[in-house]
Amino acid sequence: MNIFRLAGDVSHLVAIIILLLKIWRSKSCAGISGKSQVLFALVFSTRYLDLFTVFVSVYNVVMKVVFLALSYATVYLIYMRFRNSYDSENDTFRVEFLLVPVIGLSFLENYAFTPLEILWTFSIFLEAVAIMPQLFMITKTGEAESITTHYLFFLGLYRALYIANWVWRYHMEGFFDQIAVVSGVVQTIFYCDFFYLYVTRVLRGKGKMSLP
């Protein structure tokens, strides 16, 4: 464990909690892409199956359980509790355009052709694109509430910190996980455009982030 990965995991947790609290307190999921949240729940469900097969550390177990619980709670709030505020007209990204290539690629590119390995690889590739429906929704509505942008900021920060973690582990431990690193870099690149808008619009106190 290193400070970059710890900060990254905390940033990831903060992002998930920010979103969950926003939906719970405002009793509405307007502007939130339910599809992205379902994809994230799928990412955790396919990646954390090793909870039942290998014990890494207490931290590892606790964080996996927390991420699974919070992501399913978010999906529950969006599609059940506050479904009448779910903005389905704007949450129209075709997730099959993500799932088909990700499934195909995880069968082609993996470390071992075993169910757990393929599911893990699937979850790595899926996480890289899971935010697309949310970013698509923001471009479609032309704006995002500031709390939603803070959610995206911490999500992007988590990915950027993981890249720092991999640089650190490469130099300190010679660790290099090609699938995770390549996919993680692609995922982080998707946030760059958002980061620019976040800094130039939200942090300038505009409140909402309205796209040009």
């Binding site: 990965r5 995991d9 990831h12 090793d50 290998v54 890494v56 550390s57 590892n60 964080m63 996996k64 991420f67 993996n110 470390y111 071992a112 075993t114 390995e117 893990w120 993981y162 973690n165 996980d177 995770a180």
Partner: peptide, 10 residues
């Protein structure tokens, strides 16, 4: 080889 390596990252 890498498949057996413990995946310790979240």
């Amino acid at each position: 080889e890498k498949a057996n390596k413990t995946k310790d990252e979240l």
